[in-house]
Design a protein around this nucleic acid. Structure first.
Length: 417
RNA sequence: CGGGACGUAGUGUAACGGUAGCAUAAAUGCUUUGGGAGCAUUCAGUCCGGGUUCAAAUCCCGGCGUCCCGACCA
């Protein structure tokens, strides 16, 4: 894409009410626009990153047999009443609305009930199970306090998956499969080394523990206790002597850290399937309960997390796997038409090789172009200018390793492959 | 939901109850051209509604909105 065509602009100052690093950098670089507190528009650059995160999540979910679908945002209250989750006293962050005739509706904040309801139609026999189904959709939660940019919003993008199993063993197998897939997602996003599966409260879902995936960060809302040797972590919310005993861990072996929740998976047992009357017939023709699990990853939150983790004072540094473009081509032709033509030819050649390029073809000064490139954070950068022409090479620099060297076109293409 | 701070051009900031100013962005022209350039000209603002006052950005009341701390977080 030619940067001259991009309608967003960078700015050197963030609005004063944006305090968090992620929203500040993302707004300054033109990735997101704030619509209201906790609600952000994904602009062209931001959407590319969001879609790249989705692609990775989708890929890993599909690999373990997840079937993608899309649920509705509008939801009938009846199914939520069956599980006692409609009442504001039970679930207090609902957005609710009404049909013209007065019928109450919910605006989707999570989808256990609708998934059970919809899939229940197709589950009759033991032959129909197990099932792993998921969606990527906007969720709406009436948070009393939205905060920290993309980390805690009222409308956000989430991947939620649900498993339906015949037995406890089958459920556990699926549960662990998903947990492994989650680790692969975080690895591909570059945060696998600093993300830990963490025992946490099951909330109103289950009496068992849930498993959170916590990425270490000082701005994290959660306090966790980590044992690196055993790769075990425990959320403060369940950090009691009783828990430690149950998990057979000594208090002294744990180190306190702050974490951002980047995923949460729950064993739901038979609570929702029972409440909504979804069962299956076994080999003997007897009705059996279905054991369920649910698995969430905050897609838009992850975009914010990556900025928090990798961003610098100068700007964002995207992991290659989600960068809006593979390479940022910056031309400093400064009115030299021959040089400009050469840069444009290079842009087109890279595209023809399937490389995604952001081409800074703007008629702007070098300083502005470099500052913008730093802010936008595409990991690979190529500069073509009078200087590089004199040397007979292109200038290649890498945001992650911060190396800058002269390279030939062929050498750079090799790196970008 | 409890507590605190705040609301002035697109953005960032000033202004004792008395002429709304500066920077930046944007527009035009000339110069400049490898790290957010210079000069000149121009455009653009007091969140909304009441009240006090000769006079309100400023004081008072209400609303709306934003941020921070806590609580909550399916």
């Amino acid at each position: 894409m030619k940067q001259s065509q991009l309608f967003t602009k960078t700015r050197s100052e963030a609005p004063k009410d944006e305090v968090s690093k992620n929203s500040e950098l993302l707004i300054r670089a033109g990735f997101i626009h704030k619509e209201m507190a906790g609600v952000y528009v994904f602009l062209p650059l931001g959407l590319r990153v969001l879609e790249n995160v989705k692609k990775i999540v989708r890929d890993e979910m599909n690999k373990i047999g997840g079937q993608e679908m899309m649920m509705t945002t509008l939801q009938p209250k009846e199914i939520w009443e069956k599980t006692n989750r409609w009442d504001d006293a039970v679930v207090d962050n609902w957005f609710k609305t009404k049909l013209k005739n007065g019928t109450e509706l919910g605006v989707g904040l999570t989808h256990e009930e609708p998934f059970v309801d919809a899939l229940g139609e197709y589950i009759q026999s033991y032959k129909d199970l197990p099932i792993l189904a998921y969606q990527i959709q906007n969720k709406f939660r009436n948070e009393l306090r939205a905060k920290s940019g993309l980390l805690r919003g009222r409308e956000f993008v989430m991947k939620d998956m649900y498993s339906f199993a015949r037995t406890e063993e089958e459920h556990n197998m699926l549960y662990e499969k998903v947990a492994d897939a989650y680790y692969r997602v975080y690895d591909r996003l570059g945060v696998g080394q600093i993300t830990r599966r963490t025992f946490a409260d099951g909330g109103i879902f289950t009496k068992k523990f849930s498993d959170e995936f916590q990425t270490f960060s000082d701005i994290g809302e959660d306090t966790i206790y980590v044992n690196e040797e055993k790769k075990v972590a425990i959320n403060k919310e369940i950090f009691t002597d009783e828990t430690l005993e149950k998990l057979n861990i000594k208090k002294d072996d744990l180190v306190e850290k702050k974490g951002i929740e980047v995923g949460n998976i729950f064993p739901l047992e038979t609570k929702y399937t029972e409440a909504l009357g979804v069962r299956y017939k076994d080999e003997k023709g007897e009705m059996q309960p279905i054991i369920m699990g649910c698995y969430g990853i905050g897609i838009s939150r992850l975009v914010g997390v990556l900025v928090e983790i990798f961003g610098t004072e100068k700007g964002i540094v995207w992991p290659e796997s989600v960068s809006p473009f593979k390479v940022h081509l910056v031309e400093l032709s400064q009115g030299d038409e021959v040089l400009k033509k050469k840069a444009t030819d290079l842009y087109e050649e890279l595209i023809s090789k399937g490389i995604e390029v952001l081409f800074d073809d703007r008629d702007a000064r070098a300083g502005e172009k470099f500052a913008d490139a730093d802010l936008i954070g595409i990991p690979h950068r190529i500069v073509i200018s009078k200087k590089t022409e004199e040397k007979g090479v292109l200038e290649y620099s890498n945001r992650i390793t911060t190396e800058t060297t002269g390279k030939t076109k062929e050498e750079i293409i090799e790196i970008l492959k």
